[in-house]
Design a protein around this nucleic acid. Structure first.
Lengths: 341, 341
DNA sequence: CTGTTAGCGCATTCAA
DNA sequence: TTGAATGCGCTAACAG
């Protein structure tokens, strides 16, 4: 048993509305795009007809005429499925909402891996005029996507800092300051010897967190206990070594929530209690934090504010409005839970 | 210091390509849309010109002419940020890839909460002709979105089963069979007394998992240990009660990976070891599973296959091709890890 | 096999 | 304030 598609009900056009309201097509157009130029009575009549017929301008026709697509392209980073970017889901939601507020939709683009494919994807979008601009996430200082978007003349805004020589259409958090908040929080709780659970990944945001951690610890005169992990040693084993030393830290800050899982495990394996014996903090404030036992203190990212800033900057460019030449840094929030209370 | 938008480089049009190649616009169009109708020599010349000028058809113009938008709308479920749908991110990636294979992009739509708003969002998309069809996720048997999409005549495909009285354009996993796999796996490992960690949420997929669990346990003659949790009692407390009983289960299946975290905690709190003392399994195979200690056995969903099936069914409708009237059920895969090995 | 004509639905001229 | 004409870029029909 099969069934074909339903007959595509022809949608109402501006002409039908005009006829129904007894006006010209132009007046209908004005009713929608320049209501102040229409006589109140006419306006009411036309509005009623629009409502009645469920008329909405065909976005393709409108785009063809105006050049506005009312769509923002989101160039998604290609995630490692084993260590997904925890921002992806939450940031996307925030982005969709922020765009929606401005009457725009979000189009998802996921180029195949490689800078070349990313460039091709951008060229496709631009040449086919499918989007008004781009939002880029996980931007590196020397990002091929940013360079190419700038060269191609596509308006864009980036989550993450671009290099000094590139256009400064970005918004980001201050990773160093966020980590300093964590250290200050631990110091205020009386911790004097603290450790840091980091990966070896060479990413700018992780480097900034490490730097912020060490700078603030130094400023506050705290002892930083360093893990001496053998090359290739599993993360948990290295952390256990850290905890077994004669100068065991009373708190460990992790560079991410997922890494905090390793810290939890190491602490338990050493027969200690997370919280009372060793405080732990994470980064990202993923939903996981609330589900852990004890619940994990973490750094919450202002995803809605970031998305809002990016959309604002992007659309300002699209509309030819002046855009601040410098990037924008937004404040994080430390969410204290039982793991460090 | 401010800077305006870059001058929007006028994109190449079909006329420019035609002039460059010394042919008519129509021949350029044919080169792209019906190459077999063009003489090989001409084809080569036109293709070269297209390449040279970086020409891509303006999608708005093409859409206006053909009615094809080459965009699929994804009506995202509105997630509870505290308990996010773990499918969201992974499924979206799979959907974008599947759509891309068919030359389509994915447009994200996130209506405000409430059936009324979802209906309005669908009407907007349809009236503005922004998408060729819809993919709906987290579909309930009696889903307002499905009913409305069907009524509005928009082609759609749903991740999740629709009610029998609704059009059967869906793909889904067999939650009951997946859970039966889990039980069979535990039985094969020698477990004879098993428990189930469930929420009280009344969602069809969860109900199916519960039913599958009990049916298979009965079939294999296993003892099912039920938790007798007081109303309002925290999940972990209830699980500890379960583990403290005289007939302690040697394995506990959780309805989701996040819930397995509670099981882990309860087992540890009772001084037992996850794995050796009590085996644990999850559901969804989120990235979390690999990061837990011990790593969590879980049910992997065939997200790419589901996305592929949905896109195929959706585009078949769009193109007026026959579509199987029944839904499609895809097989899950049990990923065995240390928590139950 | 290739060129010409026409019109998709809209917003922006210009004219009344 | 309203109406009539024009063309955005493309492809489907038809003509050559």
């Amino acid at each position: 048993m099969t069934q074909g598609a339903r007959p595509p009900r022809r949608a109402t056009t501006i002409a039908e509305v005009a006829r129904a309201a007894g006006v010209s097509r132009q007046t209908v157009s004005n009713t929608l795009n320049a209501p102040h130029r229409v006589h109140p009575d006419t306006l009411a009549r036309v509005t009623a007809a629009i409502e009645e017929l469920g008329y909405r301008p065909d976005q393709s026709a409108r785009s063809l005429r105006t050049g506005e697509r009312r769509i923002i392209g989101y160039l998604a980073p290609v995630d490692d499925p084993f260590d997904p970017n925890p921002l992806m889901a939450g940031f996307l939601e925030a982005l969709v909402d922020a765009a929606g507020t401005e009457g725009h939709h979000v189009l998802l683009v996921r180029p195949a891996p490689g800078a070349e494919r990313a460039r091709a994807a951008i060229d496709e979008l631009v040449a086919a005029r499918q989007v008004d601009g781009l939002v880029l996430a996980d931007v590196l200082p020397d990002d091929a996507r940013v360079a190419h978007a700038a060269r191609a003349g596509v308006p864009f805004a980036a989550f993450g800092r671009t290099g000094a020589q590139l256009p400064q259409h970005w918004a980001d958090i201050d990773n160093g300051a966020a980590m300093a908040d964590v250290v200050a929080h631990l110091a205020a709780r009386g911790h004097r010897r603290i450790g840091f659970a980091a990966s070896t990944a060479d990413l700018p945001w992780l480097a900034a967190r490490r730097a912020g951690f060490h700078a603030e610890a130094r400023r506050l005169g705290l002892d930083v206990v360093r893990a001496r992990s053998a090359p290739g040693e599993p993360a948990v084993a290295a952390l256990r070594t850290l905890l077994r030393g004669s100068e065991r830290p009373t708190a460990v800050a992790a560079e991410s929530d997922l890494r905090a899982l390793d810290v939890y495990e190491a602490i338990r394996a050493e027969g200690l209690a997370v919280g009372p014996d060793v405080a732990v903090t994470g980064f990202h404030d993923t939903p996981l934090c609330r589900h852990l036992h004890p619940a994990l203190t973490s750094v919450r990212l202002p995803l809605r504010a970031i998305a809002g800033a990016l959309v604002r900057r992007l659309l300002a460019q699209v509309r030819g409005e002046p855009v601040p030449a410098a990037g924008e840094t937004l404040a994080t929030e430390l969410v204290v839970r039982a793991s460090s209370a």
